[in-house]
Design a protein around this nucleic acid. Structure first.
Lengths: 179, 179
DNA sequence: GATCGAGTGAACACTCATGTTCAGAAGTGT
DNA sequence: ACACTTCTGAACATGAGTGTTCACTCGATC
């Protein structure tokens, strides 16, 4: 069982039950508790590792989405970002729900940085007249993240097909629900 | 210390730290742990009581918002609903984050019912041509709830003034972020 | 085949929240 | 003043998760 597999399983288990014991995690990962303790000395260490792994993937997704290409269409960039974020749903949900990681300076820093790519894209969109300039940029970012999260929830409930999500999010966020 | 005050304090404490002990809750409420145990025999009982209290308030807010008046403007109804929900932010956030209450049939039922008022309003809005009919009603509902939640978060971070929230949510949700 | 590293299961001490009990204090009503 | 209720602080047993150690097994490597 590789490190990544363990983290994958740990995310799932801890998401289903945040109070799951390390024994539960180890069992689900097909690994002895001793081995788990060898990799992550304490529960806190495991949580931090999970958070870092999640941020790694978000960062990679944002980089891959090529949001910083100046000439390109902002809306297309947004759609690529959303599409890339959808598969990361479980990990982001985990980050979102886990409390007690606020006191880890590294993670706070990463959290603040994680939205930077999108925020710059949004600012460019506003300057280019593609996005409403009467709304604060941070609010637009929060709205985007919220809509993505709503989509992820709908997917996890089985109500929304993953492949339908990006377009649905984009049309909703861009045009709104009004006629 | 009245029952409602205890629940108020309990919400705050458990929201700040979901793993807070009953001793912490009791101390914060200015009540002995023994007394707390007398009112709520187990931790689970307390959580269920908190959930019911939250649903009570949501139900009351939705009823007070008069969403079922047939003739009235749907958009105005939505804004009243959002306005009424904002103050319930902490409680709804609590409901949202607490896991382990899924196995309480009463709460599952109440959860399903809690969105009914808004859903009917949305359906009326779609029929009246005020809301996009090309989007599923449940998705519009989820979008509304998500945007409300985004606003609540911004408020709790101190970035958004509570009185500004309803209008901001409405314009964002109705018109979207695009130009 | 011997050696090394990684993993395993079992046992252990430790901490902490929980739930319970009880005798006494504080307050309320008659 | 008295009876009654509620709240309190303290103590207790219990259970569960945690972190640690250790002897053992297994597989790969030399």
């Amino acid at each position: 069982m590789s490190v990544h597999s363990i983290l994958d399983v740990a995310i799932k288990v801890l998401l289903a039950d945040p109070s799951a014991s390390l024994g539960d995690v180890a069992k689900a990962a097909g690994v002895s508790r001793t081995t788990l303790h060898k990799r992550y000395a304490t529960r806190h260490d495991l949580l931090v590792a999970l958070a870092h792994d999640a941020y790694d993937r978000v960062d990679k997704a944002m980089t891959d989405a090529q949001l910083d290409v100046p000439g390109e269409d902002v809306v297309a960039g947004l759609e690529r970002a959303i599409t890339a974020l959808i598969p990361l749903g479980p990990r982001i949900e985990f980050m979102y729900r886990q409390i007690g990681l606020d006191d880890v300076p590294d993670l706070v820093t990463r959290y603040e940085q994680s939205g930077e790519h999108l925020l710059r894209l949004i600012q460019r969109g506003q300057e280019a007249g593609k996005l409403r300039a009467d709304l604060p940029d941070w609010w637009i970012l929060a709205t985007l993240e919220g809509s993505f999260y709503t989509a992820w929830e709908a997917i996890s409930f089985g109500r929304l097909a993953p492949l339908d999500a990006p377009k649905l999010v984009m049309t909703t966020v861009m045009r709104g629900i009004g006629t």
